[in-house]
Design a protein around this nucleic acid. Structure first.
Lengths: 226, 226
DNA sequence: GGATTTATTTAACCTGGGTCAAAGACCCGC
DNA sequence: GCGGGTCTTTGACCCAGGTTAAATAAATCC
């Protein structure tokens, strides 16, 4: 039983370099959470003593404006970790809200115990730093896209990104996240999201069939923003 | 001479926890660069084998759109380091351009040598991770401000932030960066920047005298976005 | 299945902030 | 102190994408 879990744990980049004793410590502090669709995992500002890995389902991380408008920062999918950078932050409070989009299983880990392990595992530190560096770069690109690129570019970019996730030969993208949530992730209103898909369809670049998007002309799509 | 430099180096958070031997290694790989105003330090995409600390002057980090539009990501001031997270990135290329705003002195350090030191200094790793975590949080706030807040909010926020930098009793802010660069940093056109200052003046919140901004009503300013 | 709720699309209209153009203000070298 | 740059401000106009409202379409529940 523990062996099965340990195998799963080692597939998480943060734990890949740990020895058996360290992994056992991680496992002992681990909790498996079942979260129903729409249920909140944690709130922005709440004290952060645990970090997470999505096992199944999907979680949205988002901010709320004073007026209650929601901006989705990230959609976290199975295998991905989140909130592990928070343990180094002054004050240690979650900087976003986290809520299940679908019924989800999430593994949670004890930050304090892991900090102790990091003290002895230079390898794990380096993995974490590589990941944080990667995330910083993603956020930078996000800011770039918000300020130097328009809504159509951001949507196309998302489609191409989803396409690359799967094998690049496929030309069908199945949106397993509600369009309104993807729209918020891209900082577009749902209405505009719909209009852009419609425009791209009119130009023969794609076609839309419910939650499935067929890519007709990936080359032209890719060259949209030059 | 080396003692003076070492004292300066120890004030940089990355080197604060190093022993004498490690610090000597850092010092040996260090170069002092003099960069004239408007001169480029490095380009987006260039291979990154060094990271930096501003000694005097100021450096802007920015992205360029395909059409040549400039978005300032950060204005780096004396004492601040930059590009130290790049050494962990896949490919190790600078993700932005760096250019001196004023004549500047910049210290540059050898990334590879420092990676070696980090291997043996868990303390330094933790400092770096704390800093990266902090930066991730700043970028998150940036995205929040770009998507959930308007231009006036961002400008007020900048003013309040500058005010907090100095002792909070002062009500005068001296802008030591050209307004057009601050505008780009805030993702506002210079014309809009000017108009917003004008509006805030008309409402009696501030007054503008060239590069100096007098804060008349910090309370009302602070409560602008609720 | 039919009723109800929730998500998506379509259409008409509006606005914050961008763009363009031109006038001031400031700076710096000679 | 004057001439030619570079910033900054002002005014007139414009547009990408937001807002509002209403019609469909899909999912969910008895």
């Amino acid at each position: 039983m523990n062996d099965t879990i340990d195998n799963d744990l080692r597939r998480i980049y943060l734990f890949a370099a740990l020895n058996d004793r360290q992994l056992a410590t991680v496992r002992q502090g681990m909790r498996i959470l079942s979260i129903g669709a729409g249920q909140r995992l944690f709130d922005h500002g709440q004290h952060a003593d645990r970090f997470f890995c999505v096992h199944s389902g999907q979680i949205k991380l988002f901010r709320l404006s004073a007026g209650g408008v929601e901006k989705v920062i990230e959609i976290v999918r199975p295998g991905q970790t989140f909130a592990e950078a928070v343990m180094f932050m002054e004050g240690r409070c979650y900087p976003v809200n986290a809520e299940a989009i679908d019924d989800s299983k999430v593994w949670s880990f004890d930050s304090k115990a892991f900090l102790q392990i990091l003290r002895e595992s230079s390898d794990s530190c380096f993995r974490l730093m590589a990941d944080m560096s990667q995330r910083l770069h993603s956020r930078l690109n996000e800011i770039d896209h918000l300020t130097l690129q328009n809504a159509t570019f951001r949507l196309i970019n998302y489609l191409l990104h989803e396409m690359d996730e799967k094998n690049q030969t496929t030309t069908d993208i199945h949106l397993d996240t509600p369009k309104s949530i993807i729209a918020s992730r891209l900082s577009i209103q749902p209405e505009t999201f719909s209009r852009i898909l419609h425009n791209l369809t009119r130009e023969g670049l794609i076609s839309v069939e419910g939650k499935t998007i067929h890519i007709h002309d990936a080359r032209r799509l890719r060259s949209y923003g030059q």
